[in-house]
Design a protein around this nucleic acid. Structure first.
Lengths: 215, 215
DNA sequence: TAAAAAAGTGCAACGAATCAACTTTCTGAC
DNA sequence: GTCAGAAAGTTGATTCGTTGCACTTTTTTA
């Protein structure tokens, strides 16, 4: 243990830092999450019981449930950074770029060009129905934050219905394109719909043809 | 049980379409679904166990699981008619009406003007998180059929990505507007977005009045 | 220093879901 | 008509996720 904190006992009134206790709590929490990810990747989600995870982290199952509300939550422990990245993709987008285009680029970047470590995680989630649902639920929870960012950008009321709709639809895209043969094309088409609407859809029939794109 | 049917031996010339066996099977299935709906509405979803439902229908719990894959499935037993109505809303829409407009009307009709019997069911589902998820999952399962209908209407390939996106987004609307203060307005705005896109969003003079400019 | 609060443990229990072996129908073919 | 067998159902046990309760240990606070 590294003692890098200020002594609380000898200096009352000083900045009350984290405390040994909370550090230990965070440590066991991390041990649980790490053990869970490792075991799930090794043997598959359904072939690992919460008892296994708890024993691998050297705690009891009761303690595990004090840290995580359920088995699925063991895998989705750090999604706050995802939310801030999502908001930043809108609020700090390059000048001249529309909001749907910024979201499209963000989705393309994070889902298609994922680094291999994260890709293994995505593959595990994709192949487990229970985790697919949980992943989507966690993902959609960012709707409110994203809708706020969009509304602020567009100068609309904070709870504007159109902004909420755009946020929800954009967040739904990863789930929508899951399992399609050409995910990149599917993502681009979905955001094209959000950008210009069904009304402006190219009506040229036939696959492979190059219909005029209003970008 | 409740059917006063005559013995098969006395009238052998009857139309042997279904068979006594399948009728009994359908009867117990219906008994289970009816008991489940009744008990869930009486005491709430979480305060009714599958054992309770099975006993109310006078079967064992194992038999219940032979008919339904899980507790949640007890409530969603007749959704085929919903799918055909959905497809019909697109393929038999009034001339001159766009596809998003037709879907908007269908959603407005079925979610806002529900008859009280169905409204009680919706209220139960809305107040139970586990049922909300299941309801959405069942609902989204119609994406493929709806996307096919849209593609056929638009003269696009059967698995066109844009059509799938429109289908998914439209099906997501009921989940999106759940809990909003003005559901009708939220529905109209969401379909407005799908119809004309974010690009054509009204900025200064919005329909419906009220303060648009926050800052 | 004592008390209160929090983290952790062990054990038992409940509910959902599955499995295996067995009984009771009903169906269909000979 | 009879009989083999499929299908519905039952009992009982079992696994797994999850929660509740009583209890110990550790840390914070008064």
């Amino acid at each position: 243990m590294s003692e890098t904190e200020t002594g609380t006992g000898s200096s009352p009134g000083g900045p009350r830092t984290v405390g040994r206790r909370e550090r230990k709590k965070a440590a066991t929490r991390k041990a649980l999450a790490d053990a869970a990810l490792r075991l799930f990747l090794e043997r598959g989600y359904d072939d690992v019981s919460v008892k296994d995870v708890a024993e691998a982290a050297d705690v009891s199952t009761t303690t595990l449930f004090k840290h995580f509300p359920g088995k699925e939550a063991l895998l989705f422990d750090e999604d706050e950074s995802l939310e801030s990245a999502l908001v930043a993709a809108v609020s700090e987008r390059p000048p001249g770029q529309s909001v749907p285009a910024a979201l499209r680029e963000h989705v393309l970047r994070t889902r298609l060009d994922a680094k291999p470590e994260f890709a293994r995680f995505l593959a595990l989630v994709d192949t487990t129905p229970a985790l697919r649902e949980q992943a989507r639920r966690m993902w959609i929870r960012h709707e409110a934050a994203l809708a706020r960012a969009i509304a602020a950008d567009a100068g609309a009321p904070e709870d504007d219905a159109s902004c909420r709709a755009l946020a929800r639809f954009a967040l739904e895209v990863p789930s929508l394109v899951r399992g399609t043969p050409d995910p990149r094309d599917a993502i681009e088409r979905a955001f094209e719909l959000l950008e210009h609407g069904w009304h402006a859809r190219p009506v040229a029939p036939g696959p492979g043809g190059g219909p005029q794109r209003a970008s």
